[in-house]
């Protein structure tokens, strides 16, 4: 079966639509509802995951934290792949000094620690004064884009360089084609499988990075539910109330696991198809 058949494209579009719908879903007041009688209570039939240190229902917080994690990761990866495709393709298309300078910019941005970028962007967005305390959301979105576009751009640059050696590129250059013509007619059709693979490979690492930064304390800020923050709070009380550590941990592992499995299966399918074509 071909990968780019109509049925498969329809399924992929439906999945993306569902995820985007999930991502734009609003916040419920139940996330913040505190019941001080139920502080640290164990899982029961009323609250299936138990309650946290402020008496909030853990289940609803985990649902919204999962929604936040997936939506931030998806939005930032789509943005970063969009930027990286154009940048990487141009770096592969241009040769000589322009290419060297572009590669050097990538190397330099790549060696600044993620911490500093995260802190800087969070301070920056908090000081603009956005509605609903959303500063840290934009901060972490920017951090994920800046950190993860570099490896993607590197792969796309190498792929483009391979394509640029072909004779048909030389022919269209001789006919006077500009960069964007070559980009849309020759580069994109050749690297579309690579782009799909890159998007799917990057999503779990973006989810991990978001949880990691929230865990340290420079990611999503407290009123917004986040799995990393929950785990870091769970560690403090793990000795007496282990369910506050173990349940969010299992949820985070499961999310990353699902995306990894989807990625591995898709990569296998795409590779098989490429082998058939050859």
């Amino acid at each position: 079966m071909k990968f780019w058949s109509k049925k498969n494209i329809f399924i992929i579009i439906c999945l993306i639509a569902i995820l985007i719908f999930l991502a734009t879903m609003g916040n419920s007041p139940a996330v913040e509802f505190q019941n001080s009688d139920l502080k640290y209570s164990k899982p029961s039939t009323h609250h299936i995951f138990g309650n946290d240190s402020l008496g909030r229902d853990l289940f609803i917080r985990i649902v919204y934290a999962t929604k936040n994690a997936i939506s931030i990761a998806l939005y930032s990866i789509l943005t970063c792949v969009f930027i990286a495709t154009i940048y990487g393709a141009y770096a592969g298309y241009a040769s000589g000094i322009a290419e060297k300078i572009m590669v050097m910019i990538m190397n330099i941005i790549g060696s600044i620690p993620d911490f500093l970028i995260a802190i800087f962007l969070m301070m920056f967005f908090n000081n603009i004064g956005l509605k609903n305390n959303n500063g840290s959301l934009f901060g972490i979105f920017g951090t994920l884009v800046i950190v993860s576009w570099i490896p993607v751009a590197r792969v796309i640059k190498n792929e483009t360089k391979k394509i640029m050696n072909n004779d048909y590129i030389l022919y269209s250059k001789l006919k006077g084609a500009k960069f964007f013509h070559i980009f849309f007619h020759h580069i994109i059709p050749n690297i579309k499988n690579t782009i799909i693979i890159l998007v799917i490979q990057r999503v779990p690492s973006a989810i991990f990075l978001e949880a990691f930064l929230s865990f340290i304390g420079i990611g999503l800020q407290p009123p917004i539910p986040s799995l990393g923050k929950m785990i870091s709070e769970g560690i403090k009380t793990a000795r007496l109330y282990p369910h506050l550590l173990i349940i969010p941990s299992i949820c985070l592992i499961l999310i990353i696991l699902i995306f990894n499995i989807i990625g591995e299966v898709l990569i296998k399918k795409l590779n098989d198809e490429e082998l058939k074509n050859e």
Binding site: I231, I253, N260
Partner: peptide, 18 residues
């Protein structure tokens, strides 16, 4: 491999320690 890649190191650390 897939399972080991999916476990973030801070969770592994916390659970091992616990």
């Amino acid at each position: 491999f897939v399972i080991m890649i999916s476990i973030p190191n801070f969770i592994l650390a916390a659970i091992l320690q616990y």
